[in-house]
Amino acid sequence: MLAYVIRRVLYAIPILIGVNLITFVLFFVVNTPDDMARMQLGAKRVTQAAIDHWKAEHGYDRPLLWNPAASGLGKATDTIFFRKSLRLFAFDFGASEDGRDIAAEIRTRMWPSLALAIPVFLVGLAVNVTFALTMAFFRATYLDFWGVVLCVTMMSISTLFYIIGGQYLVAKLWHLVPISGYEGGLDAIKFLILPVAIGVVSGIGSGSRWYRTLFLEEMGKDYVRTARAKGLSEAVVLFRHVLKNAMIPILTGVVVVIPLLFMGSLLMESFFGIPGLGSYTIDAIQAQDFAVVRAMVFIGSVLYILGLLLTDLSYTLVDPRVRLE
């Protein structure tokens, strides 16, 4: 088990190097730092001096991969690749283009993100499983049929519609909650309740339809027939046998997204003015702050790999038949 975990962690290293190379190529080879400076400085006709000044200020005035001017190890370390890309491995994100420390920003912004993402995740899972189980219980009846129709319709509606419509109806028309904003502590609840509700509702369509398929697949198995044959009621079969077994694919399927909850929700946070990592990312994209985008790409991939590892481990936890070698 421990050996397996260690091997998986080691396996993550080449993947992170690959991610790093992709971002490096995108950010520094396709575009030279000169282009970046020109874009940041805005004006079409900036002087070369202004560009050089900007590059020096932000540390982009070094060669890309190899610095012949430096001495000793500096030949490899005093380069953009080392300073801007490799340092991410030490979780040293440096400063954003406007000079603020990215790591500090992430530490303060992850809490609002989690305060939104965790309730959406947990409530959403509970609602979807309940909905799917109800449909599976009434399978092949009109209730099931219209449930599926509802699911397909709900998953055909753009998330943007749920957000804009919900915000308009609940916050603007009915004045039940503030339109947007955020406060720390318990006051956060009144700002979060609407985004959480919208997040859950927008996920019902695809989520419960998927779980319903899983439940129905499970209900075709032999042990279910055995349970029915020994005279158990349909409810007991469903809750005691099917639910337990169907939770294996459901749980292992959602584990991969748990670490990614840290990243927050881009749309929800930016619409509701929640100062989390999602709105941080979207602001960085819109302001073309590449230092922040690079840092978020790196964190995202670390969290994804963590999610893959957790998925494998969760198999052994919920399914005793699985042994990790």
Partner: peptide
């Protein structure tokens, strides 16, 4: 796995921003 591990929105954003330049 490498491509998947980059959040899709960020990869698209990085690519589109670079291509815009």
């Amino acid at each position: 796995t490498t491509l998947n591990s980059i959040p899709a929105v960020l990869l698209i954003a990085a690519f589109i921003l670079m291509m815009q330049v």
